[in-house]
């Protein structure tokens, strides 16, 4: 695995005192954390603790109600000007957004396009690649996710696992520096989960894409993560390397959570 770059360098993702409210419901409060370039960071924690919201903030699907999010040192949606927090222009936001990709729990493939069109649409129309170039790359990615023969299929004819593999290929086709994965196996049948996780492991091994992952697959989290963040009620309870987090967590809250999701069995004994 490529080693994460020098921690002293500018973090690729930095949350500074971020708050996210939905009406009166404060979902994230005074959140500070950073992710270094090339790092794989997994967010764990009980349902409703704000994990999805963090990924959605990074993808600009939501905007923070206070604080700053920096991508490689550049403000994502807001910056401070003369002590006031002001929103960037849509054009500025879009420039940073193209560096980030996301895979969703529900795949969200475009049903009006074939598999290959799903993958090449944005590389051609957003990144300005030629059709031939984008198609070549798409076929290569389809090969990597084991779907060479599905290029001209319609998403509706694919199984859930196949759709999710296409969605992964579609996100990678944009060459993101940051890949966000929100419970990408939660909607899949148990026997399919392994093959999708296998593909993600391979991506983690063969690329240096920064990954921010939300998952309930603790063995997977332990294997691919450089760091695990335990969330509860919108703040970080514990920030540790996976071995420490899963075998000797420092906080009672983490122990309780892991016990609930893992049962009595430990992971990582392999």
């Amino acid at each position: 695995m490529p080693t994460p770059t020098d921690p002293a360098a500018t973090p690729i993702i930095e949350f500074r005192d971020v708050e996210k409210r939905f009406g009166d419901n404060v979902v994230l409060k005074n959140l500070d954390f950073h992710v270094n370039r090339g790092e794989r960071v997994t967010l764990i924690g009980p349902s409703g603790s704000g994990k999805t919201t963090i990924l959605r903030l990074v993808m600009t699907l939501e905007e923070a109600t206070d604080g700053l999010i920096l991508i490689d040192g550049d403000p994502l949606t807001h910056r401070i000007v003369d002590g006031r927090r002001v929103r960037l222009s849509n054009r500025e936001i879009k420039r940073t957004r193209t560096r980030i990709g996301m895979v969703f729990q529900q795949f969200n493939l475009f049903p009006n396009m074939t598999v290959i069109q799903n993958i090449t649409e944005s590389p051609i129309h957003v990144l300005g690649q030629s059709k031939a170039e984008a198609t070549r790359r798409a076929r290569d990615l389809l090969h990597q996710v084991g779907l060479d023969d599905k290029a001209d299929a319609h998403p509706s004819s694919l199984s859930g696992g196949q759709q999710q593999r296409v969605a992964i290929a579609r996100a990678l086709a944009m060459d993101p520096e940051i890949l966000l994965l929100d419970e990408v196996t939660s909607a899949l049948d148990p026997e399919i989960v392994g093959e999708v996780l296998g593909i993600l492991r391979r991506i983690a091994e063969t690329t240096d894409i920064t990954m921010l992952i939300v998952t309930h697959e603790m063995q997977f989290a332990r294997d691919v993560s450089d760091r695990v963040l335990m969330f509860d009620g919108g703040s970080i309870v514990e920030d540790a390397d996976p071995d420490t987090m899963f075998t000797a967590p420092a906080h009672e809250r983490t122990r309780k959570f892991l016990k609930a999701v893992l049962g009595e069995g430990q992971i990582g004994t392999r």
């Binding site: 993808m59 600009t60 699907l61 879009k94 957004r97 193209t98 980030i100 990709g101 996301m102 969703f104 529900q106 969200n108 493939l109 475009f110 396009m113 649409e121 944005s122 129309h125 957003v126 579609r170 996100a171 944009m174």
Partner: peptide
């Protein structure tokens, strides 16, 4: 989810609507 996927793929509003 369809709208959100277009944002994740950095499509412009016009592109998103049309395609």
């Amino acid at each position: 989810g369809q709208w959100e996927a277009t944002t994740a793929l950095s499509m412009s509003p016009v592109h998103r609507m049309r395609r």
